[in-house]
Design a protein around this nucleic acid. Structure first.
Lengths: 349, 349
DNA sequence: CTGAAAGCGCTTACAG
DNA sequence: CTGAAAGCGCTTACAG
């Protein structure tokens, strides 16, 4: 069953360049101790033959493979496409490739991760918005570099001392958003929160509560759902059914949920923003068109930064810095769903 | 620089199970000639030790690697996230993993493809909506299985005789869509077409022209843009500036372009669908919310089918069938942007 | 700066 | 059904 591959090998390159395998390998790995002359000669042959070293042989022999595992959940795969694109851009600069998988749940997430990371398959791992359970004691990070994207180690998280992370500043973002709503004279807020095991959802929930606590005179409550349109819709439909209807603004933990909220309100003939304001988070492309006020999530930058952190670590031979953390900004995008006629912005042209 | 990996190896498993490496390997590769007893014993040790064979060693030794290269363009990365998810689902069933990359252009696309496919890196390749130039004479398919997703070999395409493909039935879809518009009493159509090197865009353009040609009394014209919102917007803005404005309906080649069209019309204070109808294609999640009439693209099924075709081929030892082609359906989603008051559907409740 | 040699962890004929 | 052996194509000490 040997592949009928007439693929050219390093050995043949060596012969054609009248040198040894070792030297060709040194050229490949960019080892400095090769004379410019031989290096040029070898490179020429490599070029001419279109030789590409076998990734598996390289990996097995202990060299860099340039393979980076990227994990995300099925739920937000579409959402995180931009993040993965950002990672891929950086990987491309380092001649790396992404091994990507989508998990179906916590157990699956960890299984996939371990499966990809085990046995020296990849040089590094990027975990996108992993379930927070992975920071429990039972799960240990690998001995290869890991970067967390849209997540940070929770609690003690022993063993995660050298795991880098990149997140957005949810607290600052939610603060700005809430201040904007308060400017519009809103006082009673309902947070449509996301699951308790997703970093961004938890942080946004916390930031919301913090803001309410810090501002006497404001009222706040929260309803938990998943981060889907249907989740937002039924949450609000149930809320309305309870007949209280005393909120000034629905603050959704993401745009999909906000879209569901808008739909529920439309079905219930409640006018937005006249009767109630609605805000989302992430700034999905459709939000601009729908006029949904949101916080812009810098997807591609999240990916790029995660890639940078990983490849930087891979580039260091020995000294491995302690965990580094990058904090990116959310940008407030004020649109129709949060503009109240009585608010100050209404006086602008 | 040898990795400080205390990873367990097949050799150790063999020892612990009191057998040889060969036999353990046979269990791993699911070779039939292993007695149930030994198989069970070995599997037990593998389980207990959490042993995972080294992918690189497997690949180098000539076995299956389970690695599938998936290529797409940066442009539609977000769009094709669902497709990739579908492929991943099938790959997961076969214990495979996806090596994915996003290309920046035709040259880059081919480079990446060749780079991934070269040297027995992967078991197979899935090309998502590749630029049609790859079917030119200069580019030759690999000796490993390839599946085209949302594309088919064009022209003679020598060497592509065993390349499977999966596409949607653009002709049938566009036909249904056009018939619906004609039902609404529309007569003059403007197609906002996509680039000439993307299969779906070309097919939709052809289907549009075909329909016009087949129906005397109808008028049709086409404007080419890229498939972005901005492209659709400027195309229509320019169109309006020319001052002719005699079209009844804008038929966009995809939803993004349609959203741009809607925006341009809004800016120009032209009412949709009163003054002009607008339709998209693909049925992006936002289309339902925006009330955009569209053709639903079965993204995840495209991915699943591509995965099935590939893994089926990988599963066959010798007999390799000639090119197979799967045709999936587009489903018409009639919404507000194409409903005219004078049309028959307006009489429905 | 260069080469010969060992070895990475598997798979697969080959011989029992 | 099982084992010993060769080999996949690289990298990296080791010795010049």
């Amino acid at each position: 069953m040997r592949r009928t591959t007439k693929t050219i090998t390093l050995r043949q390159i060596a012969k054609m360049a009248h040198t040894s395998k070792s030297t060709v390998s040194r050229v490949l790995t960019k080892h400095p101790s090769v004379s410019p002359k031989t290096r040029a000669r070898i490179n020429q042959v490599i070029q001419k033959q279109g030789f590409r070293p076998n990734l598996f042989a390289q990996g097995l022999a202990g060299g860099r493979t340039g393979l980076v595992a990227v994990l995300t959940s099925e739920i937000n795969s579409g959402f995180y496409a931009e993040v993965i694109k950002g990672i891929d851009q950086v990987a491309g600069q380092h001649e790396g490739h992404l091994l990507s998988s989508f998990a179906h749940g916590t157990k699956d997430y960890i299984d996939l991760w371990k499966n990809l990371a085990a046995g020296g398959r990849v040089d590094g791992v990027i975990l996108i918005a992993p379930p927070l359970d992975i920071f429990s004691e039972r799960v240990r990070p690998d001995d290869i570099p890991i970067v967390l994207c849209s997540s940070r180690p929770q609690g003690l998280a022993q063993g995660w001392e050298r795991v880098d992370s990149v997140t957005v500043d949810n607290h600052k973002g939610i603060n700005e958003l809430m201040r904007h709503l308060v400017d519009q004279k809103h006082k009673r807020f309902t947070h449509i929160a996301g699951p308790h095991d997703i970093y961004d959802a938890v942080e946004r929930f916390r930031a919301f509560n913090q803001f309410i606590a810090d501002h006497p005179g404001l009222e706040g409550e929260a309803i938990q759902t998943n981060m889907t349109m249907e989740g937002g819709r039924t949450a609000v439909l149930d809320y309305l059914k309870r007949g209280e209807r005393k909120t000034d603004a629905f603050v959704a933990c993401n745009d999909f949920a906000a879209l569901g909220i808008l739909e529920a309100l439309k079905e219930s003939c409640i006018d937005v923003p006249q009767s109630v304001a609605v805000t989302g988070c992430d700034d999905d492309p459709s939000s601009a068109i729908l006029g949904l006020t949101s916080l812009r999530m810098p997807m591609i930058d999240l990916g790029r930064e995660a890639g940078r952190l990983l490849f930087d670590r891979l580039g260091r031979r020995d000294e491995q810095p302690l965990a580094r953390h990058s904090l990116l900004e959310l940008a407030l995008r004020i649109r129709a769903t949060s503009q109240s006629k009585t608010g100050p912005t209404a006086t602008l042209p």
